Computed example of a mutant assay.
Amino acid sequence: MKYDDKYHLHLGYYENNCDYESIAYKRLSEDVWDVFFDNEQYGLEKTIEVKELSLEGIGTRIFSISGNDLTYETGVKRFEKWLAMQKII
């Protein structure tokens, strides 16, 4: 998978005394954004499949969002939903 570093978006959840961040990268070959989260950075157990794509220093892909453009609001809502599903928040 190849990504364009110029097209990335930092997504954060900062409510209820929490401070979690992920980063979304736009694929070069298609209109899809892959969102990565680094469990180790936060001292959390990995809940993600070992076979899932990981980027060194970035984390493991937790989900993807289809579309050419990704707004901060849309990305944060999906990130918050993922955090809740994983029982992190």
Rank of each mutant, 00 (worst) to 15 (best):
V50K: 13
D19E: 14
I89D: 00
V76C: 09
Q86K: 15
D19C: 13
I89T: 08
M1W: 01
H10T: 09
T47K: 14
V50A: 11
R61M: 14
I62E: 03
Y42N: 06
E40F: 06
E80H: 12
I23N: 00
L55Y: 08
S22R: 07
I62R: 03
G75Q: 05
V32L: 14
G57A: 06
D38N: 15
L70C: 11
G59S: 04
W33P: 03
R27H: 12
F63S: 05
L70W: 12
N39F: 09
G75C: 05
A24E: 04
K51L: 07
V50I: 12
K46A: 06
K81I: 13
R27K: 13
S64H: 08
Y3C: 05
K2I: 01
G43L: 11
G59W: 03
K46G: 12
Y72N: 12
F37S: 15
L83V: 07
Y7N: 11
K81M: 11
A24F: 06
A84E: 02
N39A: 14
L11S: 05
M85R: 11
G12C: 06
Y72L: 15
T74L: 12
E56D: 15
W82Y: 10
G59F: 03
S29Q: 13
F63V: 03
I89R: 09
T74I: 14
I58H: 01
G59E: 03
Y72W: 10
V76G: 01
S64G: 12
Y72G: 06
A84G: 00
I88T: 09
S22K: 08
K46S: 11
T60L: 00
S66E: 11
L70S: 10
K2T: 04
A24N: 08
F36S: 05
E73V: 07
R78H: 08
E21N: 07
E45R: 06
D5C: 05
I65H: 01
Y42W: 04
D5Q: 09
R61Y: 00
K26Q: 12
Y20L: 07
M1D: 02
D4N: 15
H8E: 12
S64P: 01
R61T: 07
Y3T: 10
A24S: 14
L9H: 09
E73N: 03
I23D: 00
G57M: 07
D19G: 11
L9D: 03
D34L: 02
L9I: 08
T60W: 00
Y72T: 15
V35Y: 08
K87A: 04
L70T: 12
H8W: 06
I62W: 02
I48D: 10
F63H: 02
G57Q: 03
G57D: 04
F63P: 01
S54I: 00
L11H: 02
L83M: 04
I88R: 06
E80W: 05
E15V: 07
N39P: 09
D5G: 05
K6P: 00
N16S: 13
Y20R: 11
D69R: 15
E80I: 11
E52S: 11
I48K: 11
V32F: 07
V32N: 10
I58A: 04
D38L: 09
K46D: 13
I88W: 06
G12A: 14
Y42F: 15
F79P: 04
E15T: 10
